[in-house]
């Protein structure tokens, strides 16, 4: 349970990093796009925490048996806030059985709601979704003949994010398209826990190349194991 001596933010493993942070009914943001850049180790630890009735904000819902699919199997999720959930049969089963609530957000609206939540912005007017079911029940404003929908900022009790490298101060660097929703979610959690593939000492990361400044990260671990599953393995033949 004790942080590493080198930093108040560094924890020994995913389980200890979530200790005291989880409870039933809480809202959790979980980074990643599909299975790319998901906090594999912290999702397992969240499952093992036994916290139930979770509202999970995540672009996708994992796949059967991996990622957030693990929390669906154990029925720990009460509601998902996502833009696309097409890859998960257990999700479909629970949703059709009305065991699981679902709020669809357009992907860009979801990203911006999280960014706004983390930046202390109550809401914003966007053209996205105007004239569609997404706008139903929301304030709309007409500006120069165009309609804009009021979307509100999102925050969470806990954000779990995945980065490539991080230091003991919580500064994070992401790799390629594994960045996706992680930087915004890191800003929007009342507590943010990050897992990284490489945990380095201060001064190793170039301060000019930090993607998420350490102020947004309260706890950090080096992930014990990364499967980094690929959903659609597409290749070309060598000429």
């Amino acid at each position: 349970m004790q942080p590493d001596k080198s930093s108040k933010k560094v924890f020994a493993d995913a389980r200890s990093a979530l200790a005291g942070l989880t409870r039933d009914g809480m809202t959790v943001m979980s980074g990643g796009f599909g299975l790319c850049g998901i906090p594999e180790n912290l999702i397992l630890a969240l499952r093992d925490s036994g916290a139930r009735d979770l509202t999970v904000i995540s672009n996708n819902a994992g796949v059967d048996g991996f990622g957030l699919g693990l929390l669906l199997e154990t029925r720990q999720i009460r509601k998902m806030v996502s833009s696309y959930v097409g890859e998960n049969r257990e999700f479909e089963r629970q949703y059709l059985a009305k065991e699981l609530a679902l709020e669809f957000n357009p992907q860009g609206t979801l990203a911006e709601r999280i960014r706004a939540g983390g930046a202390g912005i109550y809401g914003f007017y966007t053209r996205t979704g105007a004239g569609t079911v997404v706008a139903e029940g929301k304030e709309q404003r007409e500006v120069n003949g165009e309609f804009f929908v009021l979307e509100t900022g999102l925050t969470a009790d806990l954000s779990i994010v995945k980065a490539w490298k991080g230091d003991t101060e919580g500064n994070l660097v992401y790799r390629k398209t594994a960045r996706n929703f992680n930087p915004m979610m890191a800003t929007a959690g009342r507590v943010t826990v990050a897992e990284v593939e490489e945990l380095v000492e201060p001064g190793v990361l170039d301060p000019d190349q930090i993607h998420t400044p350490g102020i947004f990260v309260q706890r950090i671990i080096r992930g014990a194991h990364y499967e980094k599953r690929i959903e659609q393995r597409t290749v070309r033949k060598r000429a």
Partner: peptide, 18 residues
């Protein structure tokens, strides 16, 4: 698309393809 054996799980498109 990458050559076989050069797929990178951190490098996908919006269709989740490598």
């Amino acid at each position: 698309f990458p050559y076989e054996g050069e797929e990178d799980a951190d490098l996908i498109n919006a269709g989740k393809q490598t």
